[in-house]
Design a protein around this nucleic acid. Sequence first.
DNA 1: TTGGTCTTTGACTTCGCAGTCATTTCCGTT
DNA 2: AACGGAAATGACTGCGAAGTCAAAGACCAA
Lengths: 344, 344
Amino acid sequence: MAKKKPLDQTTQEKTGVTSYDVARRAGVSQSAVSRAFRKGASVAPATRARIVEAAQALGYEPNAIAQGLITKRSNLVAIIISNLTNLYYPEVLAELTQRLSQHGVRVLLFSLAAESDVEEVLGQVWRYRVDGAIVAARLSTDQLVAFSNRGVPLVLYNRVGEGVPVASVCCDSDLGERALVDGLVQAGHRCFGIIGGPADSYVGEERANAAMNRLAHHGIQAQFVRGRFDYESGGAGLKTLMDLTEGKLDALICVNDLMAIGAMDTARNIIGKKVPNELSITGFDGVSPATWEAYQLTTIRQPVRRMTQAAVAMLLERIESPDISPEQRLFAGELLSGRSARLL
Amino acid sequence: MAKKKPLDQTTQEKTGVTSYDVARRAGVSQSAVSRAFRKGASVAPATRARIVEAAQALGYEPNAIAQGLITKRSNLVAIIISNLTNLYYPEVLAELTQRLSQHGVRVLLFSLAAESDVEEVLGQVWRYRVDGAIVAARLSTDQLVAFSNRGVPLVLYNRVGEGVPVASVCCDSDLGERALVDGLVQAGHRCFGIIGGPADSYVGEERANAAMNRLAHHGIQAQFVRGRFDYESGGAGLKTLMDLTEGKLDALICVNDLMAIGAMDTARNIIGKKVPNELSITGFDGVSPATWEAYQLTTIRQPVRRMTQAAVAMLLERIESPDISPEQRLFAGELLSGRSARLL
DNA sequence: TTGGTCTTTGACTTCGCAGTCATTTCCGTT
DNA sequence: AACGGAAATGACTGCGAAGTCAAAGACCAA
């Protein structure tokens, strides 16, 4: 049965070339190989050259797992995201991944079905001894404390630590919704509806509350319904609100763009309301479809690049110096004045 | 200089609880702790209970890094994706991640700026000794061979190994474009344009070729321009094609939905062509915006769930039994007959 | 040539866990 | 009571690289 095993040297490569293999080939010790691959180590240029050559010939790549074990630095960062499909997060994820990889850090991705499903992935996060984590999901106080106890630097994305100080990067909901609300009120809208997010969503609650508070400041009370952040629930929410207001609704504030888009389509094509003439609709996020010709949504664009850049910088800082105290960075979004709402 | 070190026990937790710590607390050997955490190991129920209790008290989680080193199984799978922002991939990524994690496998994410930037991430892939990889990017023959030499099971997503047999999962471009082309031709369209992808994109070329071949079969030659898979290049491509055909274009085939959507918006709002009365437009992928009221795109929907499920199954199989021979699984997409094109 | 300093080098240990193997304990039999 | 086989347990080693330390080499000055 002497089948398989096409080439012996191939089989050897397969089982993994170690620093000893390279050392033997270059006629040096394993220590030398190790040093040749680390930055400021003391190796004679000639020796390093021989080692590098041997390494290339053998296809040697240092085993990051073994490195991680001894140095206690895995160069791994966990990214925990709830709704990857939500149109806004892919951009964030791509940005984070690319920025981190520029710093030699790899991304361990955890995608959650629901925002509150964090607990089950945390065990895995601990097991892999990640150097840090960026989390765009809701963490309980206990969970926040767990990060701190285990000494895993943490940066929250668009969330803040409720009751516990944690490093975080957010887009300012208050500022954003205030701009939208003020614009709508000043343009004469009077009958407001709000489509929020699921009850367990942090940003959903945050933005909805921001809008309601600002409306209250103008003496206006809005109708409120919950959506699921997706296209369909935008349309559904609008219908519910039209019923609740007996058709008098003239301003609809959605806590994200996707629902705003769904609502626009429903308003135009199903309910037959003219947008923005009869009904103004606003969103939040500034996802790319918001700028498409068909929608031209009035919304708040999050400064994704600056936010991801800040998140990465904060995390790396805290990995280097774990004792840096928590900091919140709050970015103002940019008001995108589209054609979906009459403002000011 | 006795600064730092706030609390000794905290510091201890921080540096990581080991199996020895648990062993000591439970009054057993390290071996026993190890066994208590592995499935079919021989441990007395009472002992296991004591160990588990001690582990919980200390917050012990086995160090996956150390486990990986000794077992040569990292339980890590690399996912390499080119355009995360491309609306289609987030869904794929979320599906893959969730399916893999159900099998106890973690995802190491690599996101590429351009499809051909693979080389630089491969080194990292080798270093982390991943158990396997799912790749949605273009691999050269050498790169494919590298996977095989290193014994890293590989499944290509929507790509096939050019010249080398590799396991892969694809959505059938030929079948898909054929359905679209036949439908358009039979409905009487005569002046065709195609918007392809960047030259280094595998699916882009594949689909464009499929469409051109099928058109040739009907004796039709189409105008061809390249896009970048994004909204803007859809509109730009359409304009170019209108020029090339002196305005006679009546059927536009885009190799993905995003460009089709861009083209629709441009046709309606900028060029002033009625879709589908004066111009039929088709896409490919079946992303969610394609089904939005405003577009109702005629496109080919990829069976994402079945494809990701197949990719994961194939990969896990090959991780278990590395000698399984390559297999291509080609899934037929579903023709979504929207209102963006007159078919048949 | 000798002594001293600085650089380069290798032997050895360590990280945390899994597996091997030998030993001990437990139980049912006779 | 003694024995045999199975179950449970612990001592020990090794995975692959990094860091410590001491030895060896290189180099310059006297």
